[in-house]
Design a protein around this nucleic acid. Structure first.
Length: 782
RNA sequence: GGGCCCGUAGUCUAGUGGUAGGACGCUGCCCUGACGUGGCAGAGACCCCGGUUCGAUUCCGGGCGGGCCCACCA
């Protein structure tokens, strides 16, 4: 009998990926599409829609590869998997790209035109992004990519807003808001960072009313002088105690303000006394509310002063001018340069101003308790990240400001009656653009007028992204689909820990407000990709690894295998191209194992197994059992490690060698060989199936070639009965092999040389294979 | 200032109340009917100090180091 390998390839190459992508492209719907009419249990993955940008972080790419592994695992565990692909396109970054790369100013360009340019640029980036995702062998629903700026998506965002409006959860209120003068918008607290910066601390003298004495306050915001309402000092501060209860005169303005002792003042800082204005920061708000003092607002919604002395100036200019005026009048005691923490906008790092603006708020304070309860019903992978959510919920202190004064986002669907100010909120289900359309009613129900002013503001983008799970399960779109997927499916949210307090928190909040249920059954947290030294990748450090670089130089599968092998679930990992390259060795090993096995006839069933064959099958089932357990727990890391070890150290090194002479019909009969052929093919098929979620192209390539079918249409299948005793004896077998190899080495013999050695009695059942394998002569029974 | 997480060989990882498994890298040897991107062998580690315990890398406390989050002083 002549053996010839069916698989001719000797080493792995990334061409396999290309070839398989082409093959899958033709059969996508057959292999990967979601079938709502399936009888299988449904598994829903709320994939993070990546923000469309000209660059993609390798860490993000890796987390998408990990999510894909989970999708493939659950398909093969027998679930019908809803694995949508979405793109997040709302928000400020695209506006910046247009400003930066197209040179259009948002302030000077008509809204219509600006939006058009945003969209064009987004479309260009989107195509690249999707291509890149495919090249990472992601098996999501590329046939129905959703975009958060599409009409279909935005109308659901608006409909959910309308729903919450009707429930009375939205209100308008004047609030101290974080305002970014660069982006010209109000931003949420969690978009504010603090950074040490140099600032001038100005010491200003206030005259005490009807006395020839002065109290000196220190401030970094002298331009708020005209809004000064109160002066405070620490009750233990001897310097200022004498002024308690007296009245101070605000320099230049002549306003009279009380002087009080309060604990908020730190005697160590500045002069120990400070002015409380409306509004310098959130603490001012707190103090003025407690003191029941009405605020005076002197900065308008564009960050421009409306003040007696500083009218029309920007805050920066106003600061310069007031200092100059105070100096000229001799009210300045001194100016110190200090370093202190200033609030900055996380996206553009511009210093934030606190303004009092009227904004829309979504109530969240009333829901915190319930959220703390329902999060208990969600399983986290790994568990230790749960605390981040709990900590965040416990630290939320004000309702969520949801309106933004920007262009590229979902419009707030509201009109105001021009005559009486009546607020008209339409019915949900349609996409509304109040800044350019009239409402669907003519007359104001309150006053009968027929002129409307459309709201020009848009939503915070988290309003859109926090309903992704509802959008993909077709909430408000297809009741039956929603029931089958959201109500009855197992729902998974995979994401990074960096957006637990935003995306995850807001999703839990919104879903609970709308439906009264937990949004997910499982949360899978991925770590962040760092550079080789454990630092964050950033352009300024020059340590960025581009996803394309890895794809072009190495390939997607070495990256995927590396990610599975090396990254502990939920922990940060260091990305190293050298290490990624290293894993392609395993792919070559796998191909060669398959190549070797492919020379033997495929036996589908065989009853009278030889002992060695029985052993390896038992061993395999033991591994398979663990791996499936790990897979069910989303831990492809542990799974990959045990699979890798089994394939290389046990199956290839011990079993293939042990059965080689027999499989080759060298000194063995046909029935003995058939038992080996059956076993070799059986284990190979099993290995390919179990590895398919991690390395989908190579496994499918081999599987199709040898078994004429896509491995991705298979399930993991049964685990046979495990004979622990046989596995234990197998350990002796492994030991014995090492012993023989060592002995031959010591004696300077080549591995095929003859050797005289006793085979232990417990390995009697393997005797014939062992003699053939090691070329043992005159073995005596012990 | 508050909180959370982490600390196993050069690097990355598994695991345990009885001193530790694997991968990459390193060193040496081998050439075997798929695989030199091969085979075999070898060197190499539980951050430190206390406590509990017969025994601690594992449990507890403290420290040191790293990471993350929150708050923030006019």
């Amino acid at each position: 009998m002549e053996f010839k390998p069916k698989l001719e390839m000797k080493r792995w190459s990334k061409e396999i990926e290309k070839k398989m992508l082409e093959t899958w492209e033709k059969e996508w719907s057959k292999i990967y599409s979601f079938n709502i009419n399936s009888k299988k249990p449904i598994f829903v993955i709320d994939t993070p829609p990546p923000y469309v940008a000209p660059f993609w972080h390798i860490g993000a790419a890796i987390s998408y590869a990990m999510q894909d592994m989970i999708a493939r695992i659950f398909r093969m565990l027998g679930f019908e998997v809803l694995y949508p692909i979405g793109l997040d396109r709302n928000g400020i970054p695209i506006e910046w790209y247009v400003e930066k790369y197209e040179g259009l100013s948002i302030a000077k360009t008509p809204r219509e035109e600006f939006l058009k340019r945003c969209k064009e640029l987004l479309d260009e980036y989107s195509i690249k992004m999707l291509e890149l995702m495919k090249r990472f062998l992601i098996s999501g629903d590329f046939e129905n990519v959703y975009m958060t700026d599409s009409e279909q998506y935005r109308k659901i965002t608006q409909a959910t807003f309308i729903e919450l409006w009707k429930k009375g959860l939205i209100y308008k209120d004047l609030r101290p808001s974080n305002y970014c003068p660069r982006c010209k918008t109000v931003i949420a607290d969690n978009e504010v960072l603090h950074e040490k910066r140099k600032t001038k601390l100005v010491y200003i003298k206030f005259k005490i009313k009807r006395e020839n004495q002065f109290i000196t306050i220190a401030t970094t915001r002298p331009e708020l002088l005209g809004a000064c309402k109160l002066i405070i000092f620490n009750p233990n501060d001897e310097r200022w105690k004498k002024f308690e209860g007296k009245i101070a005169i605000v320099p230049l303005y002549g306003l009279e303000v009380p002087i009080k002792a309060r604990n908020e003042a730190n005697p160590e800082f500045g002069s120990g006394a400070l002015m409380v204005c409306s509004y310098g920061d959130l603490e001012d708000v707190k103090i003025l509310r407690e003191e029941k003092i009405e605020p005076t607002i002197i900065i308008d919604e564009n960050g421009i002063m409306k003040d007696k002395l500083l009218n029309g100036l920007t805050i920066k200019r106003a600061r310069e001018k007031i200092v100059k005026l105070l100096k000229e009048s001799g009210y300045i005691e001194k100016i110190e340069e200090i370093e202190h923490n200033v609030p900055i906008h996380d996206k553009c790092r511009t210093e934030i101003e606190i303004l009092a603006l009227e904004e829309f708020y979504l109530k969240q304070m009333d829901f915190l308790k319930d959220l703390l309860e329902i999060q208990k019903e969600i399983k986290w992978h790994p568990e230790f990240h749960r605390q981040k959510l709990i900590d965040w919920i416990n630290s939320v202190s004000i309702d969520w400001p949801i309106s933004r004064r920007r262009f590229y986002g979902t419009e707030i669907p509201i009109w105001y009656c021009k005559k009486c100010g009546y607020i008209y909120v339409p019915e949900g289900g349609k996409y509304y653009q109040p800044w350019r359309e009239n409402p669907d009613i003519e007359k104001c129900p309150k006053c009968g007028a027929n002129e409307w002013i459309g709201e020009t503001r848009i939503f915070d983008t988290w309003m859109d992204s926090s309903i992704s799970i509802l959008f993909i399960t077709k909430y408000m779109q297809d009741e039956e689909f929603f029931k089958k997927t959201f109500e009855n499916g197992i729902k998974l949210r995979p994401q990074g820990y960096d957006i637990i307090r935003t995306w995850l928190y807001y999703t839990l909040l919104r879903v609970y407000q709308l439906i009264g249920k937990k949004a997910f059954d499982h949360i899978f947290i991925n770590g962040m990709g760092l550079d080789e030294k454990g630092r964050k990748m950033s352009k300024s450090l020059g340590n960025v690894i581009e996803p394309e670089e890895v794809l072009n130089e190495i390939g997607a599968e070495p990256l995927r295998l590396w990610a599975a092998m090396e990254c502990t679930i939920g922990s940060d990992y260091r990305v190293s191209k050298e290490k990624i390259k290293g894993t392609s060795k395993f792919l070559t090993k796998l191909i060669n194992i398959a190549r070797y096995i492919s020379q033997f006839p495929l036996i589908e069933e065989w009853k009278n197994l030889e002992k060695s064959d029985e052993w390896i099958i038992n061993y395999w089932f033991k591994i398979k059992k663990d791996v499936i357990e790990n897979y069910r727990d989303f831990d492809f890391h542990l799974a990959a490690q045990s699979l890798y070890k089994f394939v290389w150290d046990i199956f290839a090194s011990h079993y293939i060698e042990l059965s080689k002479k027999r499989a080759m019909l060298n000194g063995f009969g046909e029935n003995e060989a058939k038992s080996a052929w059956f076993t070799l093919h059986f284990i190979l098929k099993e290995i390919l199936k179990m590895f398919a979620p991690i390395i989908p192209a190579t496994t499918d390539f081999i599987y199709r070639k040898l078994y004429g079918k896509s491995v991705h249409l298979e399930e993991f299948g049964e685990i046979g009965e495990i004979d622990e005793n046989l596995i234990e004896i197998g350990e002796k077998l492994i030991e014995f092999n090492s012993k023989v190899w060592n002995l031959k080495k010591e004696k300077g013999k080549s591995l095929k040389d003859k050797i005289e050695i006793e085979i232990p009695s417990e390995l009697k059942d393997f005797e014939k294979d062992l003699i053939a394998m090691h070329n043992i002569i005159s073995s005596k029974q012990a």
